[in-house]
Simulated scan of single mutants.
Amino acid sequence: MTYIIDLDTYSDERGDLTVIQKILPFEIKRIYYIYNNKNNLPRGGHRHHKTIQALICLNGNCTISTSNSGLTTDYTLNKPNKCLILNPEDWHTMHSFSENSILLVLASEYFNPDDYIHKQD
């Protein structure tokens, strides 16, 4: 089931420093980010057999719509210290990207096209 975790952030007159350490429920094997979505087209629209993902909107904001066991939820990511955890069974679509948004994704598995499930039963 999808959930939000708060990342440790340290702030002072020099700015903010956010740390991802010993908080993710997996070892990071792949990192990618989504940006320059000039036509604001949705991304995702699938779930996985195995991959767990952690999503952080580093700049701007976007919405992640999830569906699991008949429960549909929208999450707005708009702070770089908020991290959305998607489990393999979570159908997800990333959309409503603001101008200049950057969505960072940390994944538990290397890319494997056989891990993707594109059609809901």
Rank of each mutant, 00 (worst) to 15 (best):
Y10R: 09
D12F: 13
R14P: 08
G15Q: 06
L17K: 09
V19A: 08
V19G: 07
L24C: 06
L24N: 02
P25A: 10
P25Q: 06
F26E: 03
F26L: 10
K29I: 01
K29L: 11
R30G: 03
R30E: 02
Y32F: 12
Y33H: 13
Y33G: 13
Y35S: 13
Y35M: 12
N36S: 11
N37F: 08
N37S: 10
N39Q: 14
N40C: 13
L41T: 15
L41P: 04
P42K: 08
P42D: 10
R43L: 04
R43G: 06
R43E: 05
G44Q: 11
G45D: 10
H46L: 14
R47Q: 04
R47G: 00
H48G: 04
H49S: 08
H49N: 14
K50M: 05
T51Q: 01
I52R: 02
I52M: 06
Q53C: 01
A54L: 03
L55A: 09
C57E: 01
C57R: 02
C57P: 03
L58E: 11
N59Y: 08
N59D: 11
N61L: 06
C62L: 13
T63G: 02
T63C: 05
T63M: 02
I64L: 01
T66F: 02
T66G: 07
T66I: 13
S69G: 05
G70N: 09
L71E: 15
T72V: 13
T73V: 14
D74E: 14
Y75G: 06
Y75E: 08
T76N: 11
L77K: 04
L77G: 03
N78C: 04
K79L: 03
K79P: 00
K79T: 03
K82Y: 03
C83M: 01
C83L: 00
L84R: 01
L84C: 02
L84A: 03
I85P: 00
N87W: 01
P88V: 01
P88H: 03
E89A: 14
D90Q: 07
W91T: 02
W91Y: 15
W91N: 07
W91C: 03
T93G: 00
M94C: 08
M94K: 06
H95S: 11
H95Q: 10
S96V: 06
S96K: 15
S96D: 15
S96M: 10
F97H: 05
S98F: 07
S98C: 09
E99K: 15
E99T: 13
N100C: 10
L103T: 06
L106C: 01
S108M: 08
S108H: 12
E109C: 09
E109P: 06
E109L: 05
E109G: 05
Y110W: 09
F111H: 12
F111P: 01
